[in-house]
Design a binder for these strands. Structure first.
Lengths: 212, 212
DNA sequence: TCATCAATGGGTCGTGCGACCCATAAAGGA
DNA sequence: TCCTTTATGGGTCGCACGACCCATTGATGA
């Protein structure tokens, strides 16, 4: 199972910070491991959380996002975001050590893609963002989840929707009860669980309920 | 069960919009039923989604948030948010028909509290925000969920954590297997389900996994 | 004072569930 | 060509689960 990408977010607007944190954490392959509301505390947070990717707002009171990251040594791959669409900060962001420069006008899934991209070593300064991001749009599911076949997913979806009885699932999918049991047995093995309740928990943790 | 509060959000920054949407939707008592990225489309969205509460950013290109809402008739209780801490827009917001004016520096849980407050008929313009919000901090759980007792929640928490066997739960909580079964039976009745898998699903839908 | 409810516990009964054995048809890659 | 995987199905067995019945303690409130 690919370990999730560890991200630290810095933004002085708590609403933005909390929203991003929530939105990114809900993705199965991204973990928000720390946050900062100003430039001065950022160093300590990064040193402690050891993120794979750093996400910083340019506009911050006191120390700006750019001076904050240029002051860090051992800077992880860093994405700088701004409210302005203008590329005014683009050059300075690069000079400060950032590997990506994005607008806050971007949809959240694109930011997620950008995080995956920079975690993968990409640089994102140019205009053809879409081209680079397209390769990173789908959340990387863990290997265990990938092993779940189409039909097994159907069964799992029934469980997550509250259809838990063998007979109910069989009726829902137009197959025999025995086949349902066979699929469940495969699911249990692949998810390392041993009953329906645990399967539901694992399915939700892996994000299998959100991507279909 | 109290129906969730229906909210429409308008913000030109997609990152903020998507983040807020995600963060608010994850609350058990709030539903985001529509979004707009500019002032012009807001009217149509509100007319279609019929929200209980409207959340609007002041700073938006084209038509500002304020002129957008002042143009609406049948305006639902409206919260205006701004990036600036300054109360510069406060008066204009009131004049435009808003019932609350908040900074984006607010933590997300406070925004959620504010939404509950205005849905309840409160006005939020003054400085003693904390006092008003304090009464709305905890998400209003549905009546069914409220009926779940302390000990039953312990059992439910075990389930959500993947401890599903009767004996395992009994060991975890230092009680007999019989007591576990009794608690489970009560849970099933209160949640209108009939096995552990369905109980897990319901617990997560009601947000019982996030508030303890 | 008395009733109610939460939490703890007992027992019994039937069946649904999970673990194991197996087979067959179709599809797809080596 | 053959082997692997997927989806479909059969059977058996033992135990755990859920549905009922019940009691005792302590707290809380009418």
């Amino acid at each position: 199972m690919n370990t999730p990408i560890r991200v630290v977010i810095a933004d002085d607007h708590r609403l933005m910070l909390d929203g991003l944190k929530q939105g990114l954490t809900s993705l199965p392959d991204i973990d928000v491991v720390g946050t900062a509301v100003d430039g001065t505390s950022l160093g300590a947070v990064v040193a402690h959380a050891k993120p794979d990717v750093l996400l910083v707002d340019v506009e911050m009171p006191g120390m700006s996002g750019l001076s904050a990251i240029s002051r860090l040594k051992d800077l992880p791959p860093t994405i700088v975001v701004t409210m302005h669409t203008a590329e005014s900060y683009g050059k300075s962001a690069r000079e400060a050590g950032a590997v990506a420069f994005l607008s806050k006008g971007l949809p959240l899934p694109d930011l997620a893609a950008a995080i995956r991209a920079v975690a993968d070593g990409q640089y994102l300064f140019d205009q053809d963002l879409d081209e680079v991001l397209s390769g990173y749009r789908t959340p990387q599911l863990s290997s265990r989840a990938e092993a779940i076949t189409e039909r097994e997913r159907d069964v799992l979806r029934c469980l997550v929707q509250g259809i838990s009885g063998t007979e109910d699932i069989a009726d829902e999918l137009y197959i025999s009860q025995k086949t349902v049991k066979n699929h469940l047995a495969s699911i249990y093995e692949k998810l390392s669980v041993n009953d329906r309740a645990q399967a539901v928990v694992e399915a939700m943790k892996l994000g299998l309920d959100r991507k279909w």
